[in-house]
């Protein structure tokens, strides 16, 4: 369903992605590993369509994403380095707006997602008073609420405690058991069911 073919991409004068290809079918998780600067974030941003590759293309459901940006993005949840939270709004308000621009969302649904990611206790505090790990849990609730079939996660367990890392692994397992696709850049190994996981090491020459 997700098909990446022969991606070449330069950042400045650095050739970051050198002819990268892979495919992912529903129920599959692709784990991107590699040292810092190997191009994990670049690859995720290229798949999302934020970066245009110099060569090669990303296809979704058999068609290049360039021609179907809105349809593709409607099925995509992207978790970047920044959790995209407004410091002056509470977790509930933040999600109300960030999920609200994608689809109609009920308050109860938001509360359920926040409970799922263990964020209920601090959900009504302004986001700027929260720790980085707490903000990440709220961002993860946002990913859940997007109801997307493709998840692009950029180091999802950064700043999370041991419980949180287990939570990320659990959420990914759930997503792939629901026939979703996950592409995640990771530093810590995640315990997932073997068979559904493809590992892809970037920057290995």
């Amino acid at each position: 369903m997700l098909n990446v073919q022969g991606l070449h991409l330069w950042r400045g004068d650095r050739h970051v992605l050198k002819g990268l290809s892979f495919a992912a079918t529903p129920g599959q998780c692709v784990l991107l590993t590699g040292r810092n600067g190997a191009g994990k974030t670049t690859l995720l941003r290229t798949i999302a369509g934020l970066l245009d590759p110099e060569e090669g293309q990303v296809s979704w459901r058999g068609a290049p994403i360039r021609g179907q940006r809105a349809e593709f993005h409607a099925e995509l949840a992207y978790l970047g380095h920044e959790p995209a939270l407004k410091g002056d709004l509470s977790a509930q308000e933040n999600l109300e707006f960030s999920v609200g621009i994608r689809r109609r969302v009920a308050r109860a649904e938001i509360d359920a997602a926040l409970a799922r990611t263990g964020a209920t206790t601090f959900a009504d505090r302004p986001a700027r008073t929260l720790s980085a790990g707490q903000r990440r849990r709220i961002a993860l609730a946002g990913v859940l609420l997007a109801h997307a079939s493709l998840w692009l996660l950029d180091e999802p367990s950064t700043n999370l405690d041991a419980d949180g890392q287990e939570l990320v692994a659990e959420l990914i397992r759930e997503q792939i058991s629901h026939e979703g696709i996950v592409v995640a850049a990771v530093h810590h190994p995640l315990t997932l069911a073997a068979g559904s996981v493809t590992a892809l090491e970037l920057g290995a020459s």
């Binding site: 999302a48 369509g49 934020l50 809105a70 349809e71 593709f72 993005h73 409607a74 099925e75 995509l76 992207y78 970047g80 380095h81 920044e82 959790p83 995209a84 939270l85 407004k86 410091g87 960030s98 621009i101 994608r102």
Partner: peptide, 15 residues
């Protein structure tokens, strides 16, 4: 732009 909201706008599937 700094907190990543614009990025999410661009990826929301809306105009």
């Amino acid at each position: 732009a700094i907190d990543g909201t614009l990025e999410q706008f661009a990826l929301s599937g809306q105009s």
